[in-house]
């Protein structure tokens, strides 16, 4: 009998998968963390550091738009720690008794920045250029925190640059993306002429140019973190949050472009 190579390959993969599932680490504990998409790089690094300090502990992350994470938690996802990109989702979870009142702490702030493809095809040089008719803008959708802050910042610019600015910018939107990483990708690919994201995302993404937004026109997002009431690893969850707020944790956050909430 002659087997097609694809079938043999599939069979090998299957055996490998069985083997992986069949040999769990002894006495392992898993900490499940739901975190806003913008935290992807920083939390992955912090998770690795946390694991090396706590042998036998595995950190599992689910990175997505904060709203999607909130809905998943409300629908019963088993989560130990939740880190949101705005207070709105955390407040909703406090009201729903998923998070204890007063349990949430702000662990960083993050400002907005305009990103452009490296070769800047629309030749944008200033914030005012965002209103240039015909350019293609990709923003985060209004439903996710960064999209909400983007529109708040546009309100500030509208007052500063003259009325009609915000409407002209909004008319240039070609897509409202579901999370901030999608905005970065579409700008990196050059499909969009510009997007507005967190400063941390502009640092995490390669092949990007940027236009800064001055403090008087900017909105700083405050990120809260909290353990979940139903967590089965309450102690470990508290340790993880403590680690985030420690000098080491905050240094990693600073490295990825976030403004630490604590000064050491």
């Amino acid at each position: 009998m002659k087997l097609p190579p694809a079938l043999i390959l599939f069979f090998c993969l299957f055996l490998t998968a069985c083997h992986t599932f069949a040999t769990p680490k002894p006495q392992s504990r898993t900490l499940t963390i739901f975190a806003a998409a913008s935290l992807t790089d920083a939390f992955t690094e912090i998770g690795t550091a946390f694991e090396s300090f706590n042998p036998g502990v595995t950190t599992t992350f689910n990175f997505a738009g904060s709203q999607a994470l909130q809905t998943q938690i409300e629908e019963g996802a088993p989560v130990d720690v939740f880190a949101s990109a705005s207070g709105r989702e955390m407040d909703a979870l406090v009201i729903g008794n998923f998070v204890a009142a007063e349990a949430a702490q702000v662990f960083l702030t993050n400002e907005l920045i305009v990103i452009l493809p490296a070769d800047n095809p629309a030749m944008l040089g200033s914030l005012e250029d965002l209103a240039k008719p015909g350019i293609k803008l990709v923003f985060a959708s209004e439903e996710v925190p960064v999209g909400k802050y983007t529109r708040q910042a546009l309100d500030l610019m509208d007052t500063s640059f003259g009325h009609g600015f915000k409407d002209m910018v909004l008319a240039n939107i070609v897509s409202n993306e579901e999370n901030v990483k999608q905005v970065v990708t579409k700008v990196q690919l050059g499909e969009a002429d510009a997007g507005i994201v967190y400063v941390s995302d502009s640092i995490a993404g390669s092949n990007l140019n940027s236009i800064g937004i001055s403090a008087n026109l900017n909105i700083a997002a405050k990120y809260p973190i909290a353990p979940l009431v139903k967590s089965k690893n309450a102690e470990l969850a508290a340790q993880f949050i403590e680690f985030i707020l420690s000098a080491e944790g905050q240094a990693v956050l600073a490295k990825w472009g976030f403004a630490p909430a604590k000064k050491f």
Binding site: G65, Q67, S141, E143, V144, V174, S175, N176, K186
Partner: peptide, 21 residues
């Protein structure tokens, strides 16, 4: 195609975005 109401937001996309809000 992305997501823009009336231009590219089809029903399945609206359902996915609706999951957000």
């Amino acid at each position: 195609a992305g997501n823009l109401e009336g231009v590219t937001q089809t029903m399945p996309v609206a359902i996915y975005i609706g999951f957000e809000r």
